[in-house]
Structure formats: C-alpha cells, structure tokens
Design a protein around this nucleic acid. Sequence first.
DNA 1: TTTGTTTGCGCAATCGATTGCATAAATAAT
DNA 2: ATTATTTATGCAATCGATTGCGCAAACAAA
Lengths: 343, 343
Amino acid sequence: MENIKKTTIHDIAQKLNVTASTVSRALNGNPRISDSTRKAVMKTARELNYEPNQIASALRSGRTQLIGMLVPTINRAFFSSIIRGVEEVANSLDYRVIVSQSNEVFDNEENAVKAFLNARVDGIIASIGKNTQQFDHYEQVLERGLPLVLFDRTTPHLQTSQVVIDDYQGAYLATSHLIEQGCTRIAHFTTERKIDIYKERYRGYVNALEDHGIERDEALIFSGNLQLEDGRSHAENLLRNKENFDAIFSASDYAAMGAMQVLKENGLKIPGDVALVGFLNEPFTSFTDPPLTSVNQFPIEMGHTAANLFFNALDSEKKKIIPKKTVLQPELIIRASSLKNSL
Amino acid sequence: MENIKKTTIHDIAQKLNVTASTVSRALNGNPRISDSTRKAVMKTARELNYEPNQIASALRSGRTQLIGMLVPTINRAFFSSIIRGVEEVANSLDYRVIVSQSNEVFDNEENAVKAFLNARVDGIIASIGKNTQQFDHYEQVLERGLPLVLFDRTTPHLQTSQVVIDDYQGAYLATSHLIEQGCTRIAHFTTERKIDIYKERYRGYVNALEDHGIERDEALIFSGNLQLEDGRSHAENLLRNKENFDAIFSASDYAAMGAMQVLKENGLKIPGDVALVGFLNEPFTSFTDPPLTSVNQFPIEMGHTAANLFFNALDSEKKKIIPKKTVLQPELIIRASSLKNSL
DNA sequence: TTTGTTTGCGCAATCGATTGCATAAATAAT
DNA sequence: ATTATTTATGCAATCGATTGCGCAAACAAA
C-alpha cells in the first residue's frame, strides 16, 4: 500500500548494471558520461519515478538550496511583498525560502539566524530589527563564508550587500510636489531618527524646502512612532496650537491616515485646506477618501534585487566577495490628497 | 581566519575519549547515558561551540523539521497573516517554514508540492488554488504518510485535516445585521460559486433573508470576480437599473469598496441611503470613509490552528491518522458603513 | 606495432548524525 | 558465590548522494 520506499540512485544503478557514481554523474550532466548511458539512466530514472533526495545531496555537497529570510513582521504588505519578490527569483532557480520573523525583538532575530545556520541554509536575506545594536550573529554568517544580503533596514557595521530605496529622494520628491502645489507651510511627521531611513526622509524634506527657499520651522516637525494614533495627535497639536500649515508630509502612511481623520473631523478640506502625502504606499492608500498620495518603494522589485544580489554573492563566494549596495529609486504616487490644482 | 571547520560530535567524542554514539545519545537526552558523561558532553559541546548539523540528522532520522507551506499569494493580508500564525507555532517547536506561492496556477502548485517533497519536508500546510481540480500531488503527500493540512480553500476529495472558517455563519451574521438595521432590499455580490467558501456565503445570505421573512430577489444578486472593478460595475448596474435597494452585502471587501466609491460618486449616503458590509476584514476596511463593516476570519488564529492540526497529525503519524476538520467562528466587525441606528 | 591520450566508468571515502545490536561492568537477586 | 539484571557504552551499518583518484578500453599519434 504505502509506497514509502523511495527509489534511489542505487536502484537505478542496479537495474542498469552500473554504479551509483555513474548514475549520479549522469543525472548531474557530468560530461565524462557517455550519451548512451546518460540516456539509459534518464530513462530508468523516469520509469522508477526517481526523485533526488536533497537532504543526502545537501549533506555531501554542502548546498541545501535553501535561503533563510528574516523580516520584522511577515504580515505587513511591505515585507510580505518583498518575500514574494525573493520567492519568485529563488524558485525560478530551484531554491526555497525559509521565513522567520523577529517582531523587532533582538532575541528572536538572533535565534532565527542561528536556526538558519543549523538548518544549513546557503545564505541569508534579512532586514534588521529596529532596536538591534549588536551584529555578532550576522558576523557569524559572514565568517562562514555565506552570502548575507540586507534590505531596507541595513547597518554600516556589516560589510555585505544591501538593497535600500533612496529614502532621501522619495522625501525630496514628496516635499517638492507639495511645494509645487503651492504649499509653503509643510509639516513633517517623523520618528526618533536612529534608523537611517527616517533620517534620510527628514533630510529629503529639509533639503527640498531649502532648495525652494522655504525656511524650516521646527514647530511643524513632529516626532513619534508614526502609527495612526501618532498622526492623530500630531494633527490635533497642529490644530490646537493654531499653527499655520497647508500641508503634511508624513514619513508613514499610517500617521498620514491619522491626520486625515482628524482634519476631516474638524471640517478641513483635503487637499483644499491641507494637502497630504504619506510614505510606503500601503495598499489602503488608494482606498481612503481622498486617496492618499504616497511614495512607492517597489517592494516586489526590492525582493527581486535582494535575491539577485544573493545569487551574485553565492557565485562569487569562492572568489572575492565584493559587497554591493543597490539603491532603488522610489516613485511618488500622486493621488487626490495632494492635488490642489487638477492636472 | 575562516572558522569554517565546524565542530562535530566526533570532535566532542575524541576530546572525551568516548564514541560519537555516546555523544549523540547524551545530546539527545537518551536515558541510557550516565549523568556524569552527559554533563561532560554538554560542557565540551559548549566549549567547542558545537552546533548540530540538521542536515546530517535529517538524512539519518528522516525528520527535517521543515514544514512546506503553500499559499496562492504571499503578499495578501489574509494569507501573510496565516503564514505568520503558522510560523509562530512552528518556531516555538523548533520547526521552520518554507513558503511558496501558486499564484492560482495549477502547475506552480504541483511543482511547489514536488519541491517540498524533494526538500523532504516533514509535512505540508496548503490552501489549494482556485482552479485546481486534480489532487494527485496532494495524494502523494498522503501516500508517503506525511501530514497534510488544508486551510481556507479545501476540497472534499482529500481525506485530511482542514481548517476553515464558518463562511455560512459569517454571511448569516452580516445579512442579519443589515436586516436589524432596518434594511430589507439587500444586494449580494458573489462569484461563480465553484468554491465552497462563496457557496457558503451565498447560503448564509439566503438563509438569513428567509429566516427574517424577506424574499430573495435575483435582480439584487451579482456574480463577478469580486475585485474592486466588479464592485463598481455591480453598483453601477444597480443604479442604472433603478433597483430598489438599501444595502449591499459583498462576499469581498474589494468589491464592497468599489461599490462604496460608486455610491459616493452618485451622491448617495452610506449608510443613510445604502448600508454596506464586506467580507475578509482587510486592513484597509478601517480606513475607508465611512469605515467598512466586515467579517473577520482571524487569519493568525487560523494559522495557529493549522499548525496545531499539523503537529497532531505528525504525532499520530504512526498510529491511525484521523483527519480532523476544524471550523472557526468568524466575527462581524461592525463599523460605520452599516450602522444606520447608532447603538 | 608501440606509445600516448581520451573517454567512460568503478572504487571507496565522505558528509555528520542516528540506532540496532552487542558487550563489559556494575548491581541485584538467589 | 553464582546467576540474573540492569546500566553505560562501543561497534558498525546506515541514510542517499557526491567526488577524487584510478584504471581499463578505445582511439590517435608516431
């Protein structure tokens, strides 16, 4: 009943009166095998319904065809899209992706990396946790000579390939767009700028203002956790303080959404009274009323790029590993929330 | 420089003048090893920074500690949340999750399952493709005696454990809620009812109407792909045909969203003129204006349940495998889009 | 014909851990 | 004191594929 007994290369070998070595070589396309035996091997392999045991292969060859992928949160559109991107490239090359999430907890991150190493993955693609300050676990990956690719959340402490988007440029585009719409009093929602990406967005905002001769006003800059509630309270503060402002550029869509709610509740028109731009292009941004202008980071493409960097590193493993930093260009997706003048 | 040479149980054995067998047994908590040697083994294992090679272990023991997880689309909130749920349980038990997506293409689905088997996963958790009519690849999984758990999209053709939510109940709740709000002319957006879940939602809708003495009107029932565009066109049809309707229950949030857009564009008040309920509780539903009432399927919990069923099956593998069908109860999340009478 | 190359394949070790079956030593039972 | 048990460990095969080295046969060159 149970066909649990799988056929191995030995079964094929026996049937053809050759050795397992020959079968292995034939299956792997080794040129030192004659055409006739190769064909015979292929044929009986098919007949016997042979499926290679990747575990055995992995043990001997040291290659598992597995990529460990670590993200802060699996079920967030940005990250799940990156996973998707990686998976697409990996699968096309017969690699599989193991996913783990850190939930921004350092211990989880460390454990996940260790688990990946024990599972003998061929390398790791990861986005580091918000609060991670120590990188020994990643160093170990590099010490073993395994490819390590960081995306989005990276660190200068590690000499390895990275993919990020140009956060500066995204913020610059967003802010410039608001200025072009005639806004001059543009608030900015950001966070404690420990992480590069938010620093960069801030810098883009500031530089865009400067380049257009607008003075930065600290009273218009709010720092928080960039969640919906933060956006709400920032907006409430703006209103309570009777700040003069005609636009908000938020480093996160969620905070922008919070602001949108508060502004609407207070009878302000968007974009008439206040124009609004977010960041991340979360799926919900096209469903708000008005739809929210945001910055697309092309997460699927980022996943593709990360995977490509990974396979580059894998190829050059034996040679020199030259860490490569790829910077993707973001795109401003203009929607009604910021369109004061219809185009 | 490169500490590539990993320590193995043989290194530990040599240092302690015992054999690898003893070390292996000590590490695995075999009771036939004395306390003293066990401690010694543990100690030197730590000293030598020993990390087990799971590949070697897997080859011999036949257990890889890997779960293959197949979803139609990784980057959709519902599925990524389920992955998250599975990952949480799996990781806590020292299992890892390999994810693949079918994109609703049968070949992808088949290949993914084969790839999982070649990677020698310990079992599979999957949601079958929309158009899958053939189940040989899944049969193979069962023939090998591996646990197979299906979630959300299941099929009666396979004798295996399943987790679904009670779509009937969700639809019944949603429809009843609309009736309680005073609606009597309730439209329904559905799809060609090949897949169980939509059949069930339809049935819940119909039964709720019947139970409240409301006659079903075929003119109010629309079938399509349940995407935003479908919702828009259904709503346009309703308006064009001058149908008398005061509510819409859509089997998908996207179609509900499309309807919301069209209704608002035509100056109708929601929920004043038309009350609206969706299904799935997509993240965006709380950000629409008005926020969209929807049915929560508890995807993370569904992932937990799927994982638990998986490990149950794994335990009882050797014994009788009793397929278990778990039905989770959905929850109606009431938001402004359907609240005619404030509570 | 003799020597030199290819070509095609076999031998046997190896990857690192697991495990059924001995076996020696220690302990208990008679 | 002798036999029966238990306890602790070793031996060696095994999981299935890969691979360096070697060797015979076939072919080419001289």
